[in-house]
Write a protein that binds this DNA or RNA. Structure first.
Lengths: 172, 172
DNA sequence: ACCGCCTAGTTGACAAGTCGACTAGAGGAT
DNA sequence: ATCCTCTAGTCGACTTGTCAACTAGGCGGT
């Protein structure tokens, strides 16, 4: 389960609650993984059950109590083993491209709005990533690697925009 | 369920068996969707149950009998409705980038082989896509749209290679 | 004669992910 | 006073996807 390893990785950066993790998946880690909060909490429980993480309840001042999870030595070993293992093969799944692939079933207007919607979504994402990019500096090797993945996202979003330009021109 | 719509779309191009569909997901449609054969057969059964597709057993000459599925009028309507509906938002999930994100947990050699493996996988894919691209001509609007999605894959793979160059140089 | 591969499909057990509802207190706005 | 949002977490039902095993006949090679 990749999610479990990613959570371990995040816990290795700093101890966190499920809520914190969810925010990471919605921001800093969002460009390479997404996760439902129910799934996050269940995975955290499993990590604790497996001895890869430990919980500590921290009384919240004002806010609810926090269930802080921190990675254990066993978790650290597990994370290292995963990093060194054979990468899982990626399963491409892009519903937008699927729609384009069958786009012959749409009229000109339908296609146009399909592309327009994509363009908007991509631009929005790109703006977010560039913002993030500007806010962070590559202080050490870890930060540099994390920024590299963000640069990867940015590069692909730009490629997508360029492809949209070409596609719309070809269909015009 | 996106898979059901994609299968409908493929059946709209030509009647097919589950086996044929699997081959499509492993080749022509592989750059935007993948599917397990068990899932394909179950989805086909559901499409038939919903009246979106009809089965016809064709005696195989030599080979086993073929369960040819063809799209029905109701299926065609369903497909058209999906194409015109709001696109589902994409869930980015890239285990390779996840590994890079936590790459600080790897030594120089580990990182190098991670990138090298990715480069190899990307180059292989790119070669396959370019082969496919060369084999197909844009005869009509449908074919042109299908080729556009392939071009999308090619563009992103090239971007990935360029990013790998930059990343390896930065880490060198 | 036997092995392995291709076509074609089925089944069961599981793993992973999604959705919505629900609890609960604090703080801010109307 | 009431409502909304944020933080924090839990639960159940459900959908989707994955893995491995299994059937079964035909074809080609050794």
């Amino acid at each position: 389960m990749v999610l479990a390893r990613i959570i371990l990785g995040l816990l290795a950066i700093a101890p966190m609650t499920g809520y914190d993790l969810k925010r990471h998946f919605d921001s800093t880690a969002g460009h390479f993984w997404t996760a439902d909060k129910a799934q996050i909490y269940r995975t955290l429980a499993k990590l604790v059950a497996d001895g890869h993480a430990a919980v500590e309840t921290v009384a919240g001042s004002g806010a609810p109590d926090r269930q802080e999870h921190r990675i254990t030595a066993a978790g650290q070993a597990e994370l290292a083993a995963w990093l060194a293992s054979e990468p899982e093969r990626q399963t491409e799944r892009d519903p937008f491209l699927a729609r384009v692939f069958f786009g012959a079933g749409l009229d000109e207007d339908g296609l146009r709005s399909l592309f327009a919607g994509r363009r908007e979504a991509v631009q929005e994402r790109l703006a977010r990533y560039e913002q993030l990019r500007a806010e962070n500096a590559a202080t050490d090797r870890g930060a540099r690697l994390r920024l590299l993945t963000l640069d990867n996202g940015i590069a692909h979003l730009r490629t997508e925009l360029a492809w949209l330009d070409a596609a719309e021109e070809e269909l015009a």
